[in-house]
Amino acid sequence: MDPVNHVEGKAYPFGRKNVDTDVIIPAHWLKTISRIGLGRGAFEALRAEPGNLFDDPAYAGSPILIAGDNFGCGSSREHAAWALGDMGIKAVIAPSFSDIFSGNAFKNGILTVVLPQEAIDRLMEVAKTDEIHVDLENQTVTTPFQDRFSFEIDPFRKQCLMGGLDEIGMTMAMDAQISNYEQRAAAAWPWQAGGANA
């Protein structure tokens, strides 16, 4: 994963609530065995509407998406994060995210920034004309009009994003602790050992 720190540029003023992952990427796109190329299917049903936001030349290539409450609810499909990444999105700003989606976005270097609805309303206005700047290190979202909104982020996620760290490699380095746990668990709950081979 490439390190992430600043995301700066135009933003799609989307603003919709309860955007589910079926809306972000419909199921028929999930038959792929690859992670790339899903941007073509992103927001497919919305893009079928003439004059839709995502095909408006004013926002083409925007790296930021501004959304409403509960963004990414529904299915666990990581294809939703892959699709957003493939269409060039590097940060999504919303009042809340589904837990699974925000985890998937993070694993793909896409920032999920939680801000209160008032801040979202203001950013929706700004996005119509101007650029927005997300600064991960300082945990702020700023605009050319002196707006400055601070956001919280899990410190571990921040470290991984800024360092572009390979989480699996980090965990594999903890092999001794995992082996130790496995021995303790085998002694405490021997009936679980069989698993799929029981």
């Binding site: 990581e78 699974i100 985890g103 998937n104 694993k107």
Partner: peptide
């Protein structure tokens, strides 16, 4: 029991 993405 909970759902996870493909990276997980």
């Amino acid at each position: 029991a909970f759902g996870i993405g493909t990276s997980e």
